[in-house]
Structures are given as structure tokens and as C-alpha cells.
Amino acid sequence: MPSSSRSRPWDVHRLPSAGGRTFLVTGGNAGIGYFTAEQLAATGAVVVLGSRDAAKADAAMASIRSRVSGAHVRHLPLDLADLSSLKTAVDRLDLDHLDAVVYNAGVALDDPPRRETGDGHELMFGTNHLGHFALTQWLAPLLSAASAGRIVTVGSFAARSERLDLDDLQSTQDYRPKRTYGRSKVAQMCFGFELDRRLRAIGSTVLSVVAHPGGALDSLTPSRPPVRTTAPGERLRALPAGLLVQGKDAGAWPVVRAVLDPEVQGGQLWGPRAFGLRGRPRREPVPSHMAAPAVAARLWAASGELAGTDPHLGFR
């Protein structure tokens, strides 16, 4: 790459062209996933929205097309809570390669009772972590066939204050919804870092990167009807919070950079510049509790057993 392009600062409003490339965004129909998809579509790439709800996916695609002239977007029916359906979903992609996948979809519950997926896994851990863990096995051949495939796992700022309980990954003994959600995001992020270590060990061309949106509020997010409408009063009341946090459009910036920036390397963590809560994307230090190889190895083994996956997740 010429030195001039290396020295050019990253501009969230002037993204590099990605024409001819294909990206999959899980949960691309709403929130951070929607804005990630919208911003990636503006680069000329084909963007596939992975969503279990066809109506919501249709609304998201209509919104993107109304804002991005000539956008190439399509829907992939995808239910991360149903592990047995994932191979069929990937087969429906009908691609010979995939340039990047963004693991964004997630469930966040605020109140008890504890709920389970159809496979019998705690819903947040089973969807947010196990679903993406298992999906990797089926996407591995497509990512490996790309010239420089990437897996971008979307973590959470909330994960900084949580720690995994390796003896209670499914929260059967201690179920508190916010804690269980935070731990599911810790598991996702640990997986993202461990996956890159394993990819580097086998000399893979695929990179695994982790990004998080910081503090991203619906009330500070611009309207995207019919996906979501932010009332003027709601936005006005949220303005003081805007000193510390941001909308979900800006929350997508670190994720988009992790997908597109040729200078991003595997095993890195990207988040907002100001205290990890708001602002333009920058690289952050990886918290020690997410980088411990012994913890990650135990999580990997337990996840593989729960999801019934190949130990190498399809990478050789």
C-alpha cells in the first residue's frame, strides 16, 4: 500500500470503496447492525442482512435503499438460537467466498424469568455467543476462500465490568439478566480474541477482530423509518447524555472500521475514542480478563461441547 494512503486519517464519512466485496451482518435489521449495514452498503459492497424476521429485514433494506443510491442489499433468514438451522442458512448464501462477517445479533433481556433456546441453552448466552460460535464453522470455508476474510465480533462496553463464571456459563445457579447479558458479551469477546490466536497459529489469511459501540442510545439515534423513529422530544431530552454517549449510527463506526480498514490487524479491539463511550473509532488495549489464554481455552472447549462443533471450527 502506498505510504500516502497509510498516512491518510480514517474518515467515518468518507469510507473506502468496497465494490465487489460481500459482507454479512447478523442482526442487520436494527440498532448497531442496521447502521453497520447502511454504512457498508454506501461503499458499494453487497451487504447481506442476517435476520430471523423477514418483515424487519425488508423494512431495513427499504430504508438503506432510500438513503444509499444503488445499494446492493439482500436478506438471509438466520436464527442463531436454532443451532441446527445454521448450516442450511449458510448454504442459502450461495456464495463462493465471503469477505467479512459481523457478529452483531444479540438478545438482551431486562427481567426474569430465565429463558432458554429450543436447544435448551440460556437464551442470551445461547444466541449471542453459542450461535455465533457455531455459525463460524459453516462460514469458515467461505471466509478462507476470500483474499483477506475477516470476522468482526461486536462486543460491549458493559463487558468490562463482568467476568465469566466458567462453572455456570448458562446462568443456571445465578441468573440476573443484566449480568447474564454482560457475561454473554464477555464470552463473545474472549472468543473473538482466542479465534484470532488460533487462526494465526495455523497461518490462516482470515483475521478475527473485536469492536464495541461504546455508549449507544436509541434516543440519540437519527430516525430511520420504518426501522425506527426517534421523536423530537425524546431526542431533546437525551441531549445532555450526548456529552458522554452517542447514537447507534456513531456506535457503528468502530465496527465498520474493523471491517474495512486495511491497517486493522487480527486480535485487536476497536471502540470509540472518548473514554470508550463516544467519538470516532480508535484501537483500544484488550482488557486482561478477555485475553487470558487459559480462560479462553476452557470457554472454547465448553462452547464446542455445547454447540456440537468441530474443535477447529472448520479452519485448517
Rank of each mutant, 00 (worst) to 15 (best):
M1F: 02
S4V: 01
P9V: 02
P9K: 01
V12E: 12
V12T: 14
G19M: 05
L24T: 02
V25Q: 06
G28S: 02
G31I: 03
A37S: 14
Q39E: 11
T43L: 15
V48L: 03
L49Q: 04
L49N: 02
M61Y: 02
M61I: 00
R67Y: 02
S69C: 10
H72L: 14
V73A: 05
H75W: 15
L76Y: 09
P77N: 12
L80F: 05
A81I: 00
A81F: 01
S84C: 09
L86F: 03
K87A: 15
V90G: 05
L93W: 04
D94N: 12
D94M: 00
L95Q: 07
D96T: 10
D99K: 04
V101T: 05
N104S: 14
A105H: 01
V107A: 07
A108T: 09
A108I: 11
D111E: 15
P113T: 13
P113Y: 06
R115W: 00
G118M: 12
G120E: 14
H121C: 07
L123W: 01
N128V: 08
A134Q: 02
T136L: 13
Q137N: 07
W138A: 15
W138Y: 15
P141E: 08
A145S: 14
V154Q: 03
S156Q: 03
S161L: 07
R163Q: 11
L164P: 09
L166I: 09
L166V: 04
L166F: 06
D167S: 12
D168P: 04
T172I: 12
D174Y: 10
Y175N: 10
R176N: 14
P177G: 00
Y181T: 00
G182H: 10
G182N: 13
K185C: 10
V186S: 06
V186N: 04
V186W: 06
A187R: 13
F193E: 01
F193V: 03
D196E: 14
R200D: 11
I202P: 11
S204H: 07
T205E: 13
L207E: 11
L207Q: 14
A211T: 11
D218K: 03
L220V: 08
R228N: 05
T229S: 14
T229M: 11
T230F: 08
G233I: 09
L239W: 13
G242I: 08
G247M: 08
A250S: 13
W253I: 01
P254G: 02
V255A: 00
V256G: 02
R257I: 00
R257A: 05
L260Y: 04
E263K: 02
Q265Y: 00
R273S: 12
R273M: 03
G279I: 09
R283G: 09
H289E: 05
A291W: 02
P293H: 10
A296P: 09
L299V: 11
A301G: 12
T309V: 12
P311M: 10
L313M: 06
L313C: 08
